[in-house]
Write a protein that binds this DNA or RNA. Sequence first.
DNA 1: ATTAGTTGGTACAGCGACCAAACAAATTAG
DNA 2: CTAATTTGTTTGGTCGCTGTACCAACTAAT
Lengths: 403, 403
Amino acid sequence: MITSTTGPQPADFADVRATNLAVVLRFVREHAPCSRADIAASTGLNKATVSSLVADLIDRRLVRETGLTENRVGRPATMLVLDGSPYAAIGVEINVDHVSAVATDLAGERLLTWRRSFSAGDSVNQGVAGVGAIVRRVVNRMAKEERQILGLAVAVPGLVDVQGTVRLAPSLGWRDADIGGDLAKALRDPGFPVQVDNDANLAALAEQRFGAHAGASDLVCLTGEIGVGAGIILDGRLRRGGLGHSGEIGHVQLDPDGPGCHCGRRGCLEAMAGIGAVLRRIPSPAEVQIEVEEVVRLAEAGDPGTLSTLHTVGRHLGRGVSILANLLNPEVVVLGGYYVPLAPWLLPPVQDELSDRVIAAEAGGCAVVASTLGHDAAALGGAARVLDSIDSGSLPGGLPRIP
Amino acid sequence: MITSTTGPQPADFADVRATNLAVVLRFVREHAPCSRADIAASTGLNKATVSSLVADLIDRRLVRETGLTENRVGRPATMLVLDGSPYAAIGVEINVDHVSAVATDLAGERLLTWRRSFSAGDSVNQGVAGVGAIVRRVVNRMAKEERQILGLAVAVPGLVDVQGTVRLAPSLGWRDADIGGDLAKALRDPGFPVQVDNDANLAALAEQRFGAHAGASDLVCLTGEIGVGAGIILDGRLRRGGLGHSGEIGHVQLDPDGPGCHCGRRGCLEAMAGIGAVLRRIPSPAEVQIEVEEVVRLAEAGDPGTLSTLHTVGRHLGRGVSILANLLNPEVVVLGGYYVPLAPWLLPPVQDELSDRVIAAEAGGCAVVASTLGHDAAALGGAARVLDSIDSGSLPGGLPRIP
DNA sequence: ATTAGTTGGTACAGCGACCAAACAAATTAG
DNA sequence: CTAATTTGTTTGGTCGCTGTACCAACTAAT
């Protein structure tokens, strides 16, 4: 059945065509290289229909025939793969001390990964200028490779509403900033859509598409930066809540008598299980990485104090994860950011807490794993978000066949 | 755009037709009485198409023409309304001490509300027999009124997986029971689908369709029975999580030093803000209602101890609600069950906690209200669930036009 | 080398569903 | 009584999927 998102939203032929184009495109993405016959057999579409759809996708340069054929009985198949070359998706991640930009082709292959320093104290205008600068460079590079930009999604650590306005980003000092609009202006009508989203949301998209549990339809991603946020994917899609402010787990109170949090409350998850709770002193943002590496060294050396701290933090983190598991019953919770290098010591106590606290048997089938995507997961997620919109039917290259 | 749920799921004309039939049906439900021209103008469908769709719906006896016309310039319109008479949806709610059954017509009007005593200690077989008995009586009554049963949904207080198997219902003493299958067997091939779901989930559906905030696309319903559970609606649909075990908020720990919970842990939401925390003594299930009424009387009389208890419980409940608001950012959290009569005293501290604890400004736009649906909300939600499946395209009366 | 068998892809007619526009119907305004 | 207005149906057209037939290209066996 076709399920429209909501309200009176009728369907017509264009929708059927767009849906089936997207179905074929997704199939090629997931089963490349494959033949038209494969597609017809697996999707249930008629062979003739598949031929027509594939022709359309080839016209739009989304799919390409590889001359290669298989070696079996019968006529050999002309295999199809995604055509990586003519398109690119851009994801950008704004952090306290740097901006990361990632570009991928249609298949999700990384084309470039760039970084630029960034000052959190900057005004919104300065921030946008900095992001605009790196994006312009990426756009130019893509133009040199003769790639059309499919879109840009920017990850911001903070509250972003459904329209893409940054409502509150404490670590950047931003409030009610229309980054998307400003950026589009700075890029002077770029000709591709510019989207803005929360970093945890985009990291979750990255995990769903590129992570070890890619394809999971119910997945939560917990970012382990200075702040802790959750990106929530349920039934295959990001769930943002009414205003787009979902996933704010960082200041959920674990213990009324817990340590003070920088937000002014006590016993927040962020205060008890954020990366700050692991470090012995509070370093500047740029030094956190170094401090974490020091903790890893100490833990590897078996330093009792460090191990004990990690165990305690792990238990607290486990309580946070168990809230997620009880409330949302995801297949997997992915720990990102600074949790990744610390995972060997954090995961066991997290698992223990989870089995203790989740009501459903065996933690409701909820696995907890460390991310394998590296530090720019949110930027990669930005690209994933652009690819998602392609996958769900808004194809580029709308020109029809030969006149 | 058409968005298929997931995977390779192509669309064809039948899907277009089903989608548009559902669109028209929903429109008539929400705007009755209305004319074909209204539908065409509001949905964007062509007038001719609307005529065809309406004719189809009339053939299926889902919609009816009222002779009435409006009094304006131009040709008078023939108004359309949902045809209540030929169909019925049944919802059943299993509780510790009773079973409630509700039947509604297509428009959601209650046709009957029945109750039957029930013993929690009974085996699954005895329980199914009891439910089967009341369902059979409802089915017979509906048959007498010449109504076709569209479906039956049963609400169970416990963990229900996506297939509808009751994994764990502590208050009933059930475990791994295929209530749906057993019930279908007990009804001897009833000719309509039998579904089983968690009581909080179905209560949430009832709120979304019949409650004061009907139509909200992001809504959470908190049941205040002996246990506390949440039904989570995001982006217009119930979200059940990977295995269907979402919403288990009752044993989220609010305070490591809190009072003991019957689950063996400490400081669970259920122990600190469940109805048990309000009552002075632990009564038998049948007596809870009386005890709650006594608490209301004391509160109304201004008894200081009672007021103080309610204030404290309200603050704890507010902490639970704030977790929901931070994590899911719903438009509204509806408090049900025994929270309803106590709402005048519980809501103020809940609101206070919410404004204190939710990171987004103004609690992320999250309202907290008491349910207005009465004690059989989950049963009503069962009917709502049946109506939902009609609304999303699985129409009855599949026979085509004239033979 | 020839033939049979198998599989891949295309061509063509048919059908179902939507749309646009013209038309018929029914009522009010003047 | 005519003009204006609005409703709903009829007619013709387009689009996109389906089924069938057909051709193409290769393997395997005779």
